Simulated assay, not measured.
Amino acid sequence: MAAVTQPGASVIGTHTRVQGDIEADEDLTVEGHVKGTITCKQHTVTLGTSGQIIGDVYAHTLHVSGEVEGNLVASHRATIHMGANVRGTLVTPCLMLEDGSTFHGAIDMDPDSDTLKNAFSGIADRGQTLASPDCDDSDADAPDATPAP
């Protein structure tokens, strides 16, 4: 029987270790261990609770629930979920740090950051724009906000 995967998404399973750089042109979920640079500049990288990344990550959107030691660069948004442990530098115009997450390092939320411009310059050159610093946009994974009566 063939494994069932979601179209347009790759998964590194809990019992998988990757040593080397990864370039993905689709969403990537890491439940295992990666030692190297992950480049997924137009898609989402999700690090599951059992996942570990030692190295840098470049993505449009980041969801971190596991352990990271390295630099995280997201052109749109990064969310560090409860239980996550991040050590390094985080560069993104929109950052969500949930209660119960641990972060040790530096944060740069300047949307005009040289790091963002340099890392994502090829994308902007192809007519796409970097994310605006407005964190109030509607993401599919964001909870609905209902105004109080």
Rank of each mutant, 00 (worst) to 15 (best):
I80N: 03
A145M: 12
I22F: 07
P143M: 02
T92N: 05
Q19F: 08
I38H: 00
R126A: 13
A78S: 06
H15S: 15
G122N: 13
T29S: 07
M1G: 13
V86F: 02
G51Q: 00
V34R: 00
D139Y: 15
G20W: 01
A3C: 15
G83P: 04
D136I: 06
Q19M: 11
T44V: 10
A142S: 11
T102A: 12
G88T: 03
P93K: 07
R87K: 13
D136T: 13
E26P: 03
D137E: 13
G122C: 04
V86R: 02
A78L: 07
I38A: 01
T115A: 10
I12A: 04
M82I: 05
V30K: 00
A142W: 12
G48F: 04
S132C: 05
P149H: 13
A24N: 06
G32A: 03
V91N: 02
P149V: 09
G105P: 06
G127E: 06
V18A: 05
S101C: 09
V73G: 10
G20Y: 01
R87W: 04
H43Y: 10
V11Q: 05
V86H: 01
A9R: 09
G100E: 05
K35F: 03
D137M: 11
R87V: 12
T61S: 10
E23G: 08
A119Q: 04
M1S: 15
S50P: 03
T44Y: 05
H33I: 04
I80S: 02
N71F: 07
G13D: 07
S132H: 12
L116F: 08
T14R: 09
D141M: 12
G127I: 05
R77M: 12
V4Y: 11
E31S: 08
A131E: 05
V86L: 03
F120M: 09
S121I: 08
Q128A: 08
T16Q: 09
Q52H: 08
L28M: 14
A119K: 00
I54F: 01
T129S: 15
V45Y: 00
A3P: 10
L116D: 04
S138D: 15
A142F: 10
P133H: 06
A2I: 15
D144M: 08
E31T: 04
G70R: 00
T129D: 14
H76K: 13
H33L: 08
